[in-house]
């Protein structure tokens, strides 16, 4: 049976996970992976998991963001493999090297500016007021803390030098 060989830096990912070495392409994960099921490029034989193991480096680093960490692959894998966690690590490499979707860099910017994931509009707060809820506004202490954590962990902001 074929053992999957990954094309990108094996030590970087495999050094943390043995999962990609033990995959024998049984397609069990394909039956549950929402990417394999619904993205035309993949099918039961050529699953999203196998694609990420085999793809050229840049393609894998871009496509990995379709993974939503639902962990169905982990739950069903007969080899006790854990592709989901390999892909979380792959996302980190992707983000660091600038291959993540723009929306992810935007999300990080938003977090570091406001402490929460969304820009809150005046109309949102008016709606909250009508419901008798407190308005949402950026808490300066929270924002300051997140910026300190970002600086300490070297979280990159695209186009900038970090928090």
């Amino acid at each position: 049976m074929e053992i999957i060989k990954i094309k990108y830096e094996k030590d970087e990912i495999v050094g943390r996970h043995f999962t990609s070495e033990i995959c024998y392409k049984c397609s069990a994960c394909s039956k549950f992976c929402p990417i394999t099921l619904h993205v035309p490029a993949y099918d039961l034989e050529n699953s999203f998991v196998v694609h990420l193991y085999r793809a050229e480096r840049e393609k894998a680093l871009r496509d990995v963001w379709m993974c939503c960490s639902c962990e169905k692959c982990f739950n069903i894998c007969p080899q006790d493999g854990d592709p989901a966690h390999v892909f979380v690590n792959l996302k980190e490499t992707s983000y660091r090297e600038g291959f993540a979707p723009e929306s992810v860099y935007g999300l990080v910017n938003q977090l570091l500016n406001a402490g929460s994931a969304y820009v809150v509009s005046v109309s949102t707060n008016k709606g909250r007021e009508k419901l008798g809820l407190k308005e949402i506004k950026a808490n300066e202490g929270v924002v300051a803390d997140l910026k300190k954590l970002a600086a300490k962990t070297d979280l990159k902001v695209k186009g900038g030098s970090g928090a």
């Binding site: 990995v64 963001w65 960490s69 979380v88 690590n89 996302k91 980190e92 992707s94 983000y95 660091r96 993540a100 992810v104 999300l107 990080v108 977090l111 954590l149 970002a150 962990t153 070297d154 979280l155 990159k156």
Partner: peptide, 8 residues
């Protein structure tokens, strides 16, 4: 966000 920087 988990995928951006695990330590953060």
């Amino acid at each position: 966000v988990q995928g951006t920087n695990h330590a953060f």
